[in-house]
Structures are given as C-alpha cells and as structure tokens.
Computed example of a mutant assay.
Amino acid sequence: MEQNEGGYFMKDRILSVDIFRGMTIVLMILVNTPGTWSAVYRPFLHAGWHGYTPTDLVFPFFLFIVGTSIAFAYKNKSVDASTYKKISVRSLKLIGLGLFLGAFTLTFPFIKDFADIRFPGVLQRIGVVFFFASILFINCNWKTLIGISVVLLLGYWLLMGFVPVNGVESTFDRAPNNLANYLDVQVFGTHIYKDDYDPEGLLSTVPSIVSSLLGIFTGLILLSKQPKKANILMGMGGALLILGYLWDVVFPINKALWSSSFVLVTAGWANLILALIYYLTDVKGITFGSIFRYAGANAIILYFLSSFISKIMGMIKIDGDKSLHGWLFDTVYVHDFMSLQLSSLLYGLTVVAFYCLLAYILYTRKIFIKV
C-alpha cells in the first residue's frame, strides 16, 4: 500500500486525522488567496498583533497535526541510521521548497536578487519543526516530552520577557526591543518578512516545536487502547485553553511571536475540534468531510502548488500593470450588486474548489505525493 506525506500506511489511518488535516490545508489556501487584500472579512485576516482570529489558528493546527502524524509514523518503527536520514531529507526538502517559493521570479535567471530573498517561511518552519519533533519523539518517552515542552515554553517566556535588548527593557510589542524581532533583524538582516518582524522568525520557531509535540500526545492517545478517547481529547483541549488564557495575562496570545500562551490556546482548540470529528467519524461512523480527507492525503503538495501558482498569477502582467490575478478578479468577480468583500471571498472559494478537485483526482488515482 502506498504511503502519503503523513508517513503511515493507508490501512492504519484514522479518518478524523485526515479530515482535520484536510480542513486545515483548505483553510490555509482560502486565507492566503483572497480576491484582494483590501477587502477581506475580519475572520479571514490575522490579528493586528496580540489576540487571535480564526485565521491565526490555521498554521498551528497544521503543526499540531504534523505531530499527530509523527506519532502514527514512528510509534512502532525500529530506529536506525536510515530513519534519521529520511527525517533529515524530508526536512531539507520542505525547507528547500520554502526557499524556492521565496526566491522564485519570472525573469531570468528566475531567482530574485540575493538581498531580496526571504529566508524564513511557512514551509521552512514546517521542515524545522518536523525535524526536531521527530527526533525528540523517537528518542524520548512521553514523560520526557512533556518535560521538554514545559521547559521550552517557560524558557521562551523568560527570554522574551526578562532579557534586555541593547540595555533596554524587553517588550512583547512590535518594537526594536522585542527580543524575537531583534534577533531576526540581527541574524537575517533584510531577509525577513518586514523590516521589524517575521511571523516565522528564528526564536519563535522554538515554541512552535511544542505545537507539534502537543500533537504527538494527541496521536499517542488516538493510538492507545484507552476507552472514550474523544472525552480525553476534550478534557485535554479544555485544560490547555484554560492554561493558555491564564498565561495570556503575563505573556499575551500572539501568533507573530508564537507566544507560549498562543501555543496552549491553539493546541486546546485543535484537540477540541479533532475530538468532535473523531467522535462523529471514528466512533459514530458518520460519513462526512470526504473532500477534506482527499485534501489531507496530499496536504503539502496542495499548499505548495497553491502558493506557487498564486505567486505566478501575481507576477504575470496584462492590461498594463494589472496582474493576471487582479484582472481575473476584477473581470469575473467584481459586480455592483455585491460587496467587494463578498467578491473577494468568492474568488478565494473558487481557488479552494480547484484544489479540492485536484485533491480528489489524486486520491481516486491513488497518487500520494510525499515531500
């Protein structure tokens, strides 16, 4: 039986995990491809800084389910040199794809000037998180992983909150004396998302590893012989939410910084939603969300293609300086009888429908592309 990018055999799959992964990747594509960024409904935008919107849940949900897949892939697998090689190669492929997305341009030699290339990115973070979470999982028991998670989250909070920056008291605000922002500027220079911060920056990658470790714990519960697994996940999700909101008082929930409170709150929601899907599909046997299952089986390649094609459509110019993306949106989706926000959303839903169709074709032909 062929394997998909999650790494475990099709016969061993838990349906709710694929549905959750597929829902996540579909939402990632939707929030990344509106018709115009000037008219987007608030839930489909990131929070300005502190706090979170539904959109801010999407990326941590994906890292969470990466951890769940790691538990499925390596729980009963013998570990040798080839295991470390496969983990390393896959991580490097993800990082390489991310760097390619950031560096690609349409003009020869098809690579941006070096000074304009962004080094961090979504796929780069997935690659780094997958590497460390996998290595930790195959070398540590669950109790040790809990200890590591606690140390990483507490350590990150202490670093961010109490280490002065150039002799100035540190802050959690978007400012030069924010330690995460400061380190990104010092290490990456111009190779970051904004002049003063990067949402996939260096230091904030550390707590994002815990997002995946928390997904591993969920995976172990799903693989266990524990009765009433949905109840356990619900309880764990609720506990994480409470702890996250308590921590928010001193370390604000913040996606750009991937704050420790953000890790707990997003993992809490992930457990609650996955518990509901698990109860409906794997316990009650209710059939729904097949299209998400198809998308979940080829999640990474769908995300890469959507990002790459969207970038190309933004680069191709027609009708003067208007991009192919802009021309298509204005010509097909913008009408006087509907709001620009609705037009923008309909464009995004059309993009999602295209990739769902592609996912269906790949799935029915048993094509599972591993990265």
Rank of each mutant, 00 (worst) to 15 (best):
residue 341 Q to K: 14
residue 232 I to E: 02
residue 294 Y to N: 11
residue 353 A to K: 03
residue 326 G to W: 04
residue 231 N to Q: 10
residue 141 N to T: 11
residue 311 K to L: 14
residue 355 Y to C: 10
residue 156 Y to W: 05
residue 178 N to E: 05
residue 358 L to N: 05
residue 193 Y to K: 12
residue 42 R to Q: 14
residue 58 V to L: 02
residue 223 L to Q: 09
residue 252 P to D: 13
residue 185 V to S: 12
residue 277 I to T: 07
residue 313 M to A: 07
residue 192 I to G: 11
residue 52 Y to G: 08
residue 256 A to G: 05
residue 132 F to H: 01
residue 260 S to K: 04
residue 230 A to W: 13
residue 104 F to N: 03
residue 28 M to A: 13
residue 200 E to K: 00
residue 99 L to N: 00
residue 57 L to E: 00
residue 1 M to R: 13
residue 117 I to Y: 05
residue 148 I to G: 11
residue 301 I to F: 07
residue 73 A to R: 15
residue 51 G to A: 07
residue 88 S to P: 01
residue 289 G to E: 09
residue 332 V to K: 04
residue 90 R to L: 00
residue 265 V to R: 06
residue 79 V to I: 15
residue 15 L to T: 14
residue 67 G to M: 06
residue 304 F to A: 06
residue 293 R to A: 09
residue 241 L to Q: 08
residue 300 I to F: 15
residue 70 I to H: 07
residue 240 L to R: 05
residue 301 I to T: 13
residue 140 C to N: 15
residue 203 L to K: 07
residue 67 G to H: 08
residue 12 D to V: 04
residue 42 R to I: 13
residue 327 W to V: 09
residue 99 L to D: 01
residue 239 A to Y: 00
residue 234 M to Y: 13
residue 173 D to M: 13
residue 343 S to E: 08
residue 263 V to G: 01
residue 46 H to W: 14
residue 160 M to F: 07
residue 313 M to H: 00
residue 158 L to R: 10
residue 250 V to Y: 08
residue 362 L to Y: 11
residue 45 L to R: 15
residue 172 F to N: 09
residue 309 I to N: 01
